[in-house]
């Protein structure tokens, strides 16, 4: 695949776990860094922490320790043109062959994820969300391990929301 994204060590998506509006938490979050709301997604915001570590994963760990269990934290992504994307907390796996329901149950157990939905057009493409305690994992690592080590998988990626530009 040509699409390559890396984590942006300075920007994180902070999302309310219960899905409620994040606006009431903004003052508290601002104590940790600059905060930017995301249009159309009232349960989350972008945070650029005042204090960052040498790498994104370490900064993520620090933020997570400060903000759990109320919030989920994901590092923002950026592509080779500098265009950002903001992960949603789900992972999509495109299998080489279409897994049946039993295989998916096995896959859920193996990776500590639960099926969110099977793609309606491409049945071998399935979206998972984190389950329970496993929800605290660093998702860029999870995706990389799946891609590298799972020979059932054609590709895997972090789902994201993005700002698109109409080229007028």
């Amino acid at each position: 695949m040509k699409a390559r994204r890396s984590v942006d060590p300075s920007t994180f998506v902070v999302r309310r776990r219960d899905g409620s509006d994040i606006i009431d938490d903004i003052d508290d979050l601002r104590k940790l860094g600059t905060v930017e709301l995301l249009d159309g997604f009232p349960d989350r915001c972008l945070m650029r922490p005042d204090s960052t570590s040498a790498n994104a994963k370490e900064t993520w760990r620090q933020l997570r320790n400060q903000l759990r269990p109320k919030f989920e934290i994901e590092p923002a992504l950026v592509d080779d043109r500098g265009t950002p994307s903001y992960p949603t907390g789900t992972i999509t796996v495109r299998f080489k062959h279409t897994p049946d329901d039993d295989e998916l149950i096995e896959y859920e157990r193996e990776w500590g994820m639960i099926v969110k939905e099977r793609n309606r057009y491409i049945p071998n493409q399935v979206t998972f969300q984190q389950e329970g305690e496993a929800g605290g994992r660093y998702l860029p690592d999870v995706v990389e391990i799946i891609q590298r080590s799972d020979n059932r998988v054609q590709a895997a990626w972090l789902d994201a929301i993005s700002r698109y530009e109409r080229n007028y």
Binding site: R5, T83, A155, Y164, R166
Partner: peptide
Amino acid sequence: CSWSGPASPDIEV
């Protein structure tokens, strides 16, 4: 598609 966006693997596939 008269627009640009990120290098999304999902859009690529």
